[in-house]
Computed example of a mutant assay.
Amino acid sequence: MKIRSCLTTDAHQLVEIYNHFILNSTATFEEAIIDVDEMINRIASISSNYPFLVCESDEQIMGYAYAVRWKERSAYRYSLETTVYVRPNHQREGVGRLLYLELLEQLRLRGFHCGLAGITLPNRPSVEFHESLGFEKVGQLKQVGFKFGEWIDVGYWQIIL
């Protein structure tokens, strides 16, 4: 497995991974699948300012992670929201951990101060994963998302880089 910067040519495989989560989970609050062109736009937009990484093995993207600005106001410029998605058949193989460790290191090297992760609740595996990396729970918003006919809470975990 190797971690590298995401390229727009990775978009097809990222769409496969992400659309699975759109259709089958509350890990994302998007409800309509996206196409390759949309993913290319997202990769280009995010990677122009922040780390966008993939984990690759034998030319297959096993997962990806990136960071985006937390909020638009200038005082938030050192705080980023972090995200990771791992291909369903490669979860619990260390892919997410490798991606996140490299993402957090790149954020530190670029001078960012705070990483934030939003986790739909309940989601014990994601909570345990983030806490194992040093994230701490800092808050919870009740019933802020509505997907699959249910109201969903979102918790926020934070790490000081």
Rank of each mutant, 00 (worst) to 15 (best):
L133I: 06
Q91W: 02
Y78C: 10
R110T: 03
V86G: 02
G96E: 02
S79I: 06
Y100H: 07
L53D: 01
P122N: 14
L121N: 03
K71P: 01
V138I: 15
H130A: 13
Y78T: 14
F129W: 09
V84S: 06
C114A: 09
H113A: 14
L116H: 04
G115D: 05
Y66T: 10
Y76P: 05
S132G: 07
R92D: 05
Q60W: 07
S132P: 02
V86C: 03
E131T: 15
Q60F: 13
D58V: 09
S79K: 10
L101I: 11
S57Y: 06
S132H: 11
H130M: 06
W70V: 00
C114L: 13
K137L: 09
P125D: 13
G111R: 11
F135Q: 06
C114V: 15
G63P: 02
V95S: 01
G115L: 12
F112D: 02
R97D: 01
E56Q: 14
N89G: 00
M62H: 09
G134A: 05
T83N: 08
R77N: 12
C55Y: 04
T83E: 00
Y85M: 07
Y76V: 01
L53M: 08
G139D: 11
V86F: 01
R69C: 04
G96Q: 11
F112C: 07
V86M: 07
Y85N: 03
F135I: 07
G111E: 09
G63V: 08
L99R: 11
V138R: 13
D58N: 15
Q106G: 04
R69F: 05
E81A: 13
C114N: 15
A75T: 12
Q60C: 11
V95E: 04
K71R: 15
S132I: 08
S126E: 09
E93I: 00
L116I: 15
Y76I: 06
L133P: 10
G139A: 12
S132D: 08
L101Y: 01
L107P: 01
F129N: 07
